[in-house]
């Protein structure tokens, strides 16, 4: 049985004015898996992430999405193909309500994005679907609250609902648990599990333990290069990973 690779990058390299942030990174993300890209600060995780979502252009290397070369496409283009990202700092539309936030994501596919001559009341027909998505992330009681007034964790939930509204094939999450307390982390982990049903998730994370139960595959990045890959067990027992995370002394111990 062959495993389908939905997102792949080959020998991806990115240099900023002579500094190599990402070096020869080759990554394969299996369809339907939850894949984590982890590494200490400055390992190049976010750079890889931005390369995959086209917010940065690679210096060299190729990116394949569903077998198609997307190395030179624009970020909005690959979003339309079904590769949708989230942001490290919660990305919501602060002065729109929770419902409107999700609805904006629905507008484009519904063909209701360029009508400048129509009343925005026509958007109300998207409300049912938008409300479903909002309910799915347990924000039903905040439906008409402006996003700016939500707590950090709820903004995350809203962001995931907005992302799911596009019905993406692959979701890319940039440190979804950053800056959260334990309880909130559990909630977001549950949300990601739920979102991953029938989809592929690639997430960037700082913390190895957070992704231990959640992810099928973990790729560890250090100084722009991949140093280990596999399930949690393989990766966490890898000497180089331990060294990267705990310093060389812990690795010797």
């Amino acid at each position: 049985m062959t495993v389908e690779i939905i997102l792949e990058c080959k020998e991806l390299t990115k240099t900023f004015l002579g500094f190599t942030a990402v070096k020869n990174v080759s990554l394969q993300v299996r369809q339907g898996s939850i894949h984590a890209l982890i590494g200490p600060n400055g390992a190049g995780k976010t750079t890889v992430f931005n390369l995959l979502t086209k917010f940065l252009t690679p210096s060299s290397g190729t990116i394949l999405f569903c077998g198609e070369d997307v190395s030179h496409e624009k970020p909005a283009q690959i979003a339309r193909k079904g590769l949708v990202r989230s942001f490290q700092i919660s990305a919501t539309f602060p002065h729109l309500t929770v419902l409107e936030n999700v609805r904006v994501a629905l507008q484009r596919k519904a063909g209701l994005a360029t009508q400048f001559w129509q009343s925005d009341k026509v958007l109300n027909k998207l409300n049912i679907r938008a409300a479903e998505l909002v309910e799915a992330v347990n924000l039903a009681q905040y439906m008409n609250t402006k996003a700016v007034d939500l707590s950090y964790g709820r903004k995350r939930a809203l962001e995931i609902a907005t992302t799911l509204a596009l019905d993406p094939k692959v979701i890319l999450l940039d440190e979804p648990m950053a800056g959260m307390g334990h309880e909130e982390i559990d909630r977001v982990v549950a949300l990601i599990r739920q979102a991953a049903i029938g989809r592929t998730v690639l997430m960037v994370e700082h913390n190895l333990s957070v992704v231990s139960n959640l992810c099928d595959t973990i790729t560890v990045l250090q100084r722009g290069e991949i140093i280990a890959e596999g399930d949690y067990r393989t990766v966490s027992s890898d000497l180089r990973v331990r060294e990267a995370y705990m310093g060389s002394e812990a690795a010797h111990a």
């Binding site: 919501t92 729109l96 904006v104 484009r108």
Partner: peptide, 23 residues
């Protein structure tokens, strides 16, 4: 106050997010 205007507001509020939604 049109569907187009709603997208404009989204761009005003968070441009990278609007791009990542495919706009």
């Amino acid at each position: 106050n049109s569907p187009f205007g709603q997208v404009l507001k989204a761009i005003r509020e968070h441009e990278p997010r609007a791009i990542s939604l495919g706009y």
